[in-house]
Write a protein that binds this DNA or RNA. Structure first.
Lengths: 203, 203
DNA sequence: AGCGTAATAGGCAAAATTGACTAACAACCG
DNA sequence: CGGTTGTTAGTCAATTTTGCCTATTACGCT
């Protein structure tokens, strides 16, 4: 949980603050932190003694807001977690992998087109990253490592863009999907023949 | 849901088959498919009319196994989902992003070391991918796009490796994290001074 | 002054996901 | 032949996550 980390620097905070900060980092994209998760996390962390409620004030008749701060125990736990994340590598789950593993179910033309389209989207996203990097808004108001963030995003995608084009070419070139000796009566084979001839069909 | 896709080519299958296939693709890493999820998904898809139970046989006194196959409706739905995944781009959620955003909480030395370590892990993983690509086990028994899979993994990581080294250098070089005019009394600033001097400390 | 919209806080029920557990049978092994 | 290990098939309770909902104040516009 990285909610913990956020509470730690922002010191006394209430849920809504955290929520806004996360949105401003557009963290909903790369972490799984929907609005509802935050309050749940705060309560759970408090139960575990990693956070502590500091106050509960009410302005007018709006929902009362509870303010939290981190306990020493929470700080320790945070550092443990943080180090774990820094030193370990876990290949991130990627929905595109799932999609790509069903390549034989896509007509070749469409698959190639989709890959080229993906390359373009990635290029566009890189452009906007580069634009951000050149703006001095970034350099004036944000810590440097935010810029490094963009660099990482770009570094990763450059390679993928090239891969998309290469692979699109291969697909169009008609390379057979299956190794020659593959038993032609098993699932893949039939599927593939279908999608070569008609696009994918149901039964 | 990509369970649907699996059922679709493997036609009549029971949960355990799916489970093994997914494990053999080591899909537990890049999709969120733990053993328990599968049976849940199968039942839910059946409720929705995308799958259909075909038989329930029992061998000896072992747990009865239910066999499923896909319905035409399920096939359509699958194609819709598949196309969505192919044409859309959603930056995959990555826990490392979360970790990196707390860079100022790490002592510089350690952060740099961790990044170099990460680069090495990535290199190692690439080596083993390359080994797989050169084995003819891969080319003899697996569809070609499995090889392309490895290519993608390599393409993505190459860029990241370089980034890790570059960034490690920057961190060690002592570049200040915060822009000059940053208000020195706010959260980040204090944190950073702490971690520059002592490593991170709790109050 | 009146109205629509946005921001402020947070709750809650339902869905998804996990991970550990069961319990029968097969297979090996000295 | 007794014991151990491995495979088969799936269940289940508990935790996580999601998405949408409520209700109040503030702000801008005409």
């Amino acid at each position: 949980m990285m909610i913990l980390g956020l509470v730690r620097w922002m010191q006394p905070v209430h849920g809504y603050d955290v929520r806004r900060e996360l949105l401003s980092w557009s963290a909903d994209k790369w972490a799984n932190v929907a609005p509802g998760s935050i309050y749940h996390a705060l309560r759970k962390l408090t139960e575990e003694g990693l956070l502590r409620e500091v106050a509960t004030e009410q302005v007018g008749a709006r929902p009362a807001r509870t303010t939290y701060e981190i306990t020493p125990k929470g700080s320790e736990e945070f550092e443990t977690l943080l180090r774990e994340q820094w030193w370990e590598y876990r290949p991130p789950p990627d929905p595109f992998f799932a999609a790509f593993s069903f390549l034989p179910a896509m007509p070749r033309e469409e698959a190639a087109a989709a890959l080229r389209n993906r390359a373009n989207i990635l290029r566009a996203s890189n452009e906007s990253s580069r634009a951000a990097l050149n703006s001095d808004w970034l350099h004036r108001t944000k810590p440097v490592h935010v810029a490094w963030f963009f660099d990482l995003a770009i570094a990763r995608t450059e390679g993928e863009i090239a891969w998309c084009e290469r692979t699109a070419d291969l697909i169009e070139s008609g390379v057979p999907y299956l190794p020659p000796e593959f038993d032609a009566n098993q699932g893949w084979a039939q599927w593939q023949r279908d999608s070569d001839r008609f696009g994918v069909r149901d039964e």
